[in-house]
Design a protein around this nucleic acid. Structure first.
Lengths: 171, 171
DNA sequence: GTTGTTGCAAATTTTTTGCACCCAC
DNA sequence: GTGGGTGCAAAAAATTTGCAACAAC
């Protein structure tokens, strides 16, 4: 799950004040929290490449990444919460479990969600933002963000007649 | 949570081919499934009034509604799935648990979600649908639905300086 | 009568928490 | 050294499932 990430832009274009690692350490220090090996290992894994992942996948990633330096499941959950609070990650609830993606240094975007293969396809739309802000303004609502998930079936799955994985098509 | 439902339209204006109850029975019959007392009781409760609810709340509603005619938790979950498949309800994942709302006989809409008081404000936008479909078409994606939640602070909460409820501002 | 449905309890899945020990500051 | 952090295991919370008894058709 979580593939086919948008190639419509290069990260290089985006001006990032500092690396995610630095940003996270700033955040921790500002809150009087500590920079531990576990947190460092997790942030490194998370920002190694841009993809959607859940707590379990991150757990595996860390184990593979830095062998020997395994991190407990509880710490993964605790750190993910911190990363969200620090504005580095964005949390989505998809089909029961929480899925995360980069937020810091990554442009605003939304998703097409394939109910068949559970793939997430990213897209961006400036018009969407305009509509969002117009609607909010009409309700005197101060926007901090949004989440749009368009559900359906991706091109690939539409072609394969017989469903393969995906025993149930919820959401 | 889940209040202040849009008053921008009256249900009366919407032409409904048949009642949710009838629609559900049609669906069940078409799939060779049975119309049981439990299912009847649940549909009745669900469509008694338009509001957002979760499985637990529905369980309580049924217990209150038709006293003596209690329905088991498992059946509530099973029936909710059927109602979603039948197109009568829409499922949203909000902060971990599944929240449901009317889909059949109720116009497509989206939500402004106040992170302060957790209120859900409904709104509709035709332009949004057009953008959604245009984006999907570009990716050869077959759309079955979408979910847009704009997070922020509602007018009411913006005015009250000090936050009142809302211990945490997730999602 | 057949076959889908229900209730119950047990099992899953995902996330949280209590607590003793450990380490970053 | 001290207070926050970690791991572990147990607890929670939400949802699913196996199975025997039941009820709709």
């Amino acid at each position: 799950m979580a593939e086919d990430l948008s190639q419509d832009f290069s990260l290089g274009e985006v001006q990032v004040a500092s690396s995610p690692q630095e940003r996270f350490e700033e955040y921790l220090q500002s809150k009087g929290q500590r920079i531990t090996q576990q947190r460092r290992a997790l942030v490194e894994c998370v920002f190694e490449k841009h993809e959607h992942f859940d707590a379990d996948e991150l757990l595996e990633m860390v184990a593979r990444h830095a062998e020997g330096a395994s991190v407990s499941r509880a710490t993964v959950y605790r750190t993910l919460d911190e990363l969200v609070k620090a504005g580095l990650l964005r949390k989505m609830d998809l089909g029961g479990r929480a899925v995360y993606e980069h937020d810091y240094g990554y442009p605003q975007h939304d998703h097409l969600y394939c109910q068949q293969c559970h793939k997430l396809i990213e897209f961006r739309s400036e018009e969407l933002m305009e509509i969002r802000d117009a609607v909010a303004a009409k309700h005197s609502f101060r926007v901090t963000g949004h989440r749009l998930i368009v559900s359906g079936v991706c091109e690939e799955c539409s072609q394969k007649r017989h469903r393969r994985h995906s025993p149930l098509d919820l959401i």
